[in-house]
Write a protein that binds this DNA or RNA. Sequence first.
DNA 1: ATGAAAGCGCTAACAG
DNA 2: CTGTTAGCGCTTTCAT
Lengths: 336, 336
Amino acid sequence: MGLDRQLRPATQSDVAREVGVSRTLVSFAFRDAPGVSGGTKQAIFDAAKRLGYRPNAAAADLARKHRSAVGLYLMDIHNEVYADILSGVRMALPQARNRLILSVSQSIDGVDAGAVDSLIEARVGIIIAATLLDPDERVQELAQIVPIVSVARPVPGVDSVYSDDEAGARAATEHLLSLGHTRIAHLGGPDYDGHTVRRRSYEKTMRGAGMVPRTVPADDFTQDAGMRAAVEILDSADRPTGIFAHNDQFALAAREAAYARGLAIPGDLSLVGYDNSRTGRLHGIELTSVDLHAMELGNIAGTVAMDRLNDPEAPVADERLTPELVVRNSTAPAAM
Amino acid sequence: MGLDRQLRPATQSDVAREVGVSRTLVSFAFRDAPGVSGGTKQAIFDAAKRLGYRPNAAAADLARKHRSAVGLYLMDIHNEVYADILSGVRMALPQARNRLILSVSQSIDGVDAGAVDSLIEARVGIIIAATLLDPDERVQELAQIVPIVSVARPVPGVDSVYSDDEAGARAATEHLLSLGHTRIAHLGGPDYDGHTVRRRSYEKTMRGAGMVPRTVPADDFTQDAGMRAAVEILDSADRPTGIFAHNDQFALAAREAAYARGLAIPGDLSLVGYDNSRTGRLHGIELTSVDLHAMELGNIAGTVAMDRLNDPEAPVADERLTPELVVRNSTAPAAM
DNA sequence: ATGAAAGCGCTAACAG
DNA sequence: CTGTTAGCGCTTTCAT
């Protein structure tokens, strides 16, 4: 037994015919444009209801030469940060802008090729892109085709909403230093354009304190890659007593690897993450982490996107939020 | 300084004019339909590249009287289960179907009203809906307007892909019973149509074992609501020694509440969740949980959606997966 | 307050 | 192999 097949969906013409008016009136009525008498309006709504008419947003966009959909590119929906950004963006979008077309990076290594293309072909009015991996020039190129709001990473000449990673990484590193750690490793992300700020800030801070930095980058942003890098750090001859990880996901991978080796946290190893994810707050995890306020980031990005849509000529936005180190129990003074 | 304003995006006509052929050829070339000579094709692609032409998927859909976009409704993107479902769905969609329009329940209590509407107005070809809160009849109504695939909940007469909650909840409850627990409470979800299976299975299993069930439902699916219900359970006069939670999120809320009260897990309280989330696998959390294979659920849902699109007359799909209890360290024998 | 007509960017017969 | 023509569902002047 199959499904009841829906008939061809009702169109404006159907409604117009039913009521005995022109399509124009129906169009006006549905966008409550001025110039439709109360009676007619009512009759139109009644008929529409009866016929199950639903406006076709795509056709409307086409006619209006105007794109109402918002495109959202996310690198990895499994990372809480991106889910938070999504929530923030949603909150910022007005009811009328509720066509959010999502594109999540498909490939493991996070090449964005097709992902962004599909948003362009869907003719979104603007793309909010979180953690694009493409180099700056490529993003700038794309921005010629469709307005882009870069989230969590500044791109010169492109609307950007991000967190001060330099400060965040410095705070994280200094925290470990202040606890007396000298051998502090950085479990870094892969080195994409625009995503090396945390690493460099860590290295700079270490050198500034007279320590020698040691970065072990993960091959990509997956959990497995994080684990591999963590293992490399923990199994090395000169095991550090502190690790600053590029994000909480990597920090938690390091945590697992540590426990698997019988290392206690923070007894044998102090651990700092980045993101302040919910998981890190759980009893027994209590991960010291840098909060980049992802939801706020998303929210502001959504607002910036709306502004850009309303005024293409407005100055390029450059919103930098200040992150915040949240100290919990995964860090402790270095043993003597 | 503003943004470089993009000129009106190039259209097929522009390309055609540039090359000196008709729009038809351009149209054919881009969908590599047969009947375009190699030379012409090349010339068209070159010109398109030069002009920065991108096909307009919305216009194509309109002309083709055919909807290529897929709508995805998710209740709460912060819950790992939904992120997994999304990943699964994405994996199932062919390259050409990569217009995934997302709609996440906005309101706290999860009323789906506007969410699904926006998908309909976006004229998606099919809606994959995870954990719709609407009653069966409403879903069936919607399915008349646009094909729907219900994920994680069976709806009669509508394509459904779900996990056997009855079996999962039974396994969870029996696990606690077999450990000798007698006072086992259920930290339940809110009682929406189609989402009471776990509770009922728990209650039935309890009664079958001669125990008296005790369900404390959360007001909604938010973390806060879960916490409130958890607190109610733990602060009650007759505190249970085992809790079976509707999902991992609730279980983790109960865990926090327990620790806040100085209760040890599993020493003073055995805890079973549902979802087998990554968080539950972490050292020190080690939550016993029922795995409903969310990603597979999403993947199958995507496949079912494609099938439905290809054959509207195919029999209604009813895919029920078997969940699996994963025992970890949050459960232990009841104290004597 | 209402309607006629043109057009948005694209596809799909149908002709040549 | 290539072009002509007629829409898809909707918006938008411009008349009436």
